[in-house]
Nucleic acid binder design. Sequence first.
DNA 1: AGCCTGTATCGATGGTTGTCGATATGACTA
DNA 2: TAGTCATATCGACAACCATCGATACAGGCT
Lengths: 118, 118
Amino acid sequence: MVQPDAACCTDLSAAPLSERRAAELAGGFKALGDPVRLRLLSMIAARAGDDVCVCELTPAFALSQPTISHHLKVLRQAGLIDCERRGTWVYYWLVPETAATLAALLRDPASDPLPTPA
Amino acid sequence: MVQPDAACCTDLSAAPLSERRAAELAGGFKALGDPVRLRLLSMIAARAGDDVCVCELTPAFALSQPTISHHLKVLRQAGLIDCERRGTWVYYWLVPETAATLAALLRDPASDPLPTPA
DNA sequence: AGCCTGTATCGATGGTTGTCGATATGACTA
DNA sequence: TAGTCATATCGACAACCATCGATACAGGCT
């Protein structure tokens, strides 16, 4: 024993993030944890207010069309973007609330940000 | 052909995020893309200014000690936390600059945040 | 109706990741 | 020096993921 008096542990403060909440938020970060998806998001966000056609995104990468479609789906399932079909083409736009929620956690990682409005 | 005049693609705006930069930032987000790591980070950040002993973190999870050690290593390699050995124990603390860089990108995903000061 | 174009889904595959038990390393005590 | 505790590393394995080609679906043309 190493002197019980000198123990380092004061009080194992309850984790500010519940297990369930952490899983929610981690899902968002995991969606951002890929360079292709990060660039897709920035390209979509660059058109603030307006939306972006998939046919504009796909040729910007040296990847197959199904792969880009997959990444867009991941971002959409994470609630970071949304889309709509208009005739032949599909348009994507940013969902700023989701990005803001994740940003809030990063700005102050000790505090649980407000629950996702979803 | 669907009327070349009606083409949806205006100008495929150059991606605001370079390939290299996107890979850097995605590495940070990937580190956050796990519920355990997210909770570890929030527990460490909760001790703003002070630092946290590993022996305080490990028992908060139903996971083996090597697994927690692994997750801490991932967070450290992402530059989100740092650590120091003091005698028998090892203490971790938050690196706020890294979290701030990622938060900046989320607050305005269209703009490339300042390069990591590392 | 039939064809063409844009986008999504499917199934397979190689690489990555989270987890564990076993073991190594570093530090304090007796 | 030997023993014990705290933490990290190693090696293995199952689960997951990014990617592809092939194919399905949806909408506009002729």
